[in-house]
Design a protein around this nucleic acid. Structure first.
Lengths: 142, 142
DNA sequence: AACCGTTAGTTGTACATACAAAATTAAAGG
DNA sequence: CCTTTAATTTTGTATGTACAACTAACGGTT
């Protein structure tokens, strides 16, 4: 068997692998909401701060502005959020339909959390999430 | 400021964030090879085990088989690998052109590694990579 | 008030990635 | 040997995500 340690030693590789694994699980748990997890979180942010600007959404979700435009396009098409233009910014509001889904979204988040906690152990899972968050913050500003 | 702890507590979210951050850095460091990092690693695997099957490549890189087909398509189009069909499997061989790039790919990997080690600290970087690998393994088989 | 740099958002385009279904071929059981 | 089953790969299609280039609006300077 050839040497493949260069993969397992590489954070680029392992981080992407983790991301694919957890994304798959998250999609399964969010399936019953009819949303993918990212959209669920966007809606939660919009419900938490109605009128939040797209810039803020992009920052909080840490995606590129153009990506956020696409997300909001889709949610708007599904009548889950509304855009209101105010000068050069766009404010995003949840619709009643979105508010009606809030509980389901929370449930899915909880189930996702429970599921990976069960696999990884509650302690390690929390620790991992924290470590990963810190690392991504440091890598982002460089 | 509204509560956004549900994002920072969520491994789906933090793992994706890390993945995007490290991917960006990896792409920068691999830019001089003219390849994206995944392709670089695929080539390294093909050089390490000439004739490796696509199935094995997909497993080692932990991507879906269909994804691997697309990767090999692109590398073949660029004359960096050759396919040889053998029964129901396809064997992948590196071309001379690919071998000529090996050193550059290794250099890029090293630079990538050095760069995130510098940001995160060598110790934590190694620990993080290990933890992340273990977690992804566990999540994959569930 | 006309100008210019900065900020927010959008659009065109491209890439990585996946799933499901189809194609191909090997293997196994009668 | 023929039929069914399993394994490997490919193809069609869809989603997430980004960058670069563009548009529009704001804020300050002359």
């Amino acid at each position: 068997m050839a040497d493949e340690s260069f993969l397992h030693n590489c954070l680029f590789f392992t981080a992407n692998r983790l991301s694919r694994a957890i994304t798959k699980i998250a999609e399964e748990e969010f399936a019953e909401t009819g949303l993918s997890p990212m959209y669920g979180y966007l809606i939660r942010l919009a419900i938490g701060t109605p009128g939040i600007s797209q810039k803020e959404l992009a920052e909080k979700l840490s995606v590129a502005p153009s990506t956020l435009t696409r997300f909001v396009d889709k949610l708007e098409a599904r009548k889950l959020v509304e855009r209101r233009v105010s000068g050069k910014t766009v404010q995003v509001y949840p619709t009643d339909k979105a508010r009606g889904m809030e509980e389901a979204i929370r449930r899915a988040s909880r189930k996702l959390h429970d599921r990976y906690d069960a696999i990884l152990g509650e302690e390690s899972s929390t620790a991992l999430t924290e470590t990963v968050l810190k690392a991504s913050r440091r890598l982002e500003q460089s």
